[in-house]
Nucleic acid binder design. Structure first.
Lengths: 159, 159
DNA sequence: GACGCTGAGTTGAAGCGTCAAGTGAACCAG
DNA sequence: CTGGTTCACTTGACGCTTCAACTCAGCGTC
């Protein structure tokens, strides 16, 4: 339990860290706010619907979808229940293996994604893409790649 | 309701965006997990305690503390109630102006911060600082500065 | 083919954040 | 000094996430 003189952050490091924390906290909040206001869904729900919309047959196993949208299986299950009530998704046991459950995007769900996407993309542009130069965007790609690798060396989906 | 041909993201932009989303979702989760496991507090609670510990008299007005820790006043009020129950903080009306409430870090609260900080700093190092080069850290500072400015042009605390 | 094992998914309870309404201190107008 | 306004903060209810059981399909073993 003795800390062998913890390596404190330098001023430069602290500056980078504080900026990152602030962005890390406020960017999700800003995206949620836009989607909630304009589409009545959360960013996570958008990720789920969008993930399905980009998949073959607009269908994905629950576990794959959970991984793709960076959420727990339990969280996804609750969310899919809500989306099902709203008529945007429905569930079916996988005919190939009854242990899996398939989440399928309905036509209404597809329409919802199509209607929500432009506003969301605009927000992403306004908050992240447009304020940065192309060079910074490439730097950001490499930086987040390294951070994501540090968080999960297994690299489930980051290749 | 007609979208004037939304400017979709290029492949390069999408790559940067997806990487950022993943980091944005998983980094807070990883930091919360470390603090919850090793210190029994959330990252937000740590920010609050840490913010107080760095202030003169270990004291701050609720509204200042809320702004500093990127949270709503309501959220802070609930959190301070919990921290008060644990004996790490106590509240006092501001003698200078009774409309304000001062949150004061107790000695136990100070000890808690001192005990939690090294582990937290280690996590920050492991997940962000060490995986990046000095150059990348400087790039990240500028990138998050621009994003934070886009989120809140008023720049409440980012100077 | 009955048994236990594994792993996907579901469910309900508990905890936290948000929203909207409420409280109360200072201040100002008359 | 009385009534209204503002602003900082608090409170309670509701919604979402998490955690810990639980269910159930498939698979292997005997």
């Amino acid at each position: 339990m003795d800390s062998p003189s913890p390596r404190w952050l330098t001023e430069e490091e602290k500056l980078a860290w504080l900026g990152l924390v602030s962005a890390m906290v406020r960017l999700p909040a800003a995206l949620d706010a836009q989607l909630q206001r304009d589409a009545g869904i959360s960013h996570f729900e958008y990720q789920v619907l969008s993930g399905l919309s980009m998949s073959a047959e607009r269908t994905l196993r629950m576990s794959e979808l959970a991984q793709m949208s960076d959420g727990s299986l339990s969280r996804l299950s609750h969310v899919i229940s809500r989306l099902e009530k709203r008529g945007w998704v429905h569930r079916t046991p996988d005919p190939a293996d009854g242990r899996y459950t398939l989440a399928v995007l309905t036509d209404d769900g597809w329409d919802k994604v199509v209607a929500s996407a432009p506003g969301h993309v605009e927000a992403v542009r306004a908050l992240v893409v447009d304020p940065l130069t192309r060079t910074q965007l490439r730097q950001l790609t490499e930086i987040t790649r390294r951070i994501n690798h540090a968080i999960d060396p297994g690299g489930t989906c980051t290749g």
